[in-house]
Computed example of a mutant assay.
Amino acid sequence: MNATMRREIDEQVKLLPELQPRLAEAADGLPRACGRILAGGCGDSAFAPQALQAVCRAMNLPLEAKTSMDIACFTPLTDTDTVVLSSISGGTKRTVEAASAARAAGARVIAITCHGDSALADVATRTVVLPFTPLSRKTPHTLDYTITLLSIAEVLRSQAGLADTALAPATSDLGMLLRGAKERVGRISEDHRPEGKLIILGADGDLGTANYTAAKFHEAGGLVTFCAETENFVHGMNFMLDPEDTLVVLGSTEAAVRRGRSVVNAFSSLCRTYLLTTETGHAAPDVILRRVFQLTFMVQELCLAVSDKLGLSLEAPRAGRPRGAEHLEAQTRAMAS
Rank of each mutant, 00 (worst) to 15 (best):
E329Q: 12
L167M: 09
S262H: 08
R321Y: 09
T133C: 03
T78C: 15
V287C: 12
T273I: 08
G222W: 03
G324V: 08
V249F: 07
K216P: 03
L38G: 05
F267C: 03
K216N: 00
E254N: 10
D44F: 06
L150C: 01
L167S: 04
T125P: 02
G320H: 05
L241P: 12
E183C: 04
I200Y: 14
C42R: 12
R137D: 13
G40V: 14
F226Q: 08
L314F: 11
L310Y: 10
R333W: 05
R103Y: 05
A98S: 02
A220F: 12
T113Q: 10
R57G: 14
D117C: 07
A283C: 08
A220T: 11
K182H: 11
P285E: 05
H282K: 12
S189Y: 07
L135P: 00
I37N: 00
L223W: 13
P169D: 03
L156K: 10
T92Q: 11
D70Y: 04
T4G: 01
A104L: 10
E18K: 10
G175E: 14
L174G: 02
G205R: 08
A305C: 01
T146Q: 15
A266R: 12
R6K: 15
E279H: 13
G311V: 12
A101H: 07
L201R: 05
T80N: 15
M1S: 14
K182I: 02
A58G: 12
A170T: 08
I112Q: 00
K138A: 13
S151F: 03
Y145H: 08
E18R: 15
L120P: 02
R187H: 15
F267R: 04
R318D: 10
S269Q: 12
T171Y: 01
I88Y: 01
L156H: 01
T165A: 12
P17Q: 04
I188A: 14
R291F: 09
L275Q: 08
A48L: 13
T67I: 14
G43Y: 13
S172W: 06
G324Y: 05
D242Q: 15
K182L: 01
G29I: 06
R333Y: 03
A163N: 04
R258T: 08
S189M: 09
T171E: 06
A220K: 14
L16R: 11
T253E: 13
A319I: 02
V185I: 15
M237G: 07
L23H: 06
Q53N: 03
A319G: 01
M176K: 13
Y212I: 00
L276Y: 05
P17I: 04
T332L: 14
M5E: 09
Q20S: 15
N232S: 06
K66A: 09
V55L: 12
D79N: 11
E244V: 09
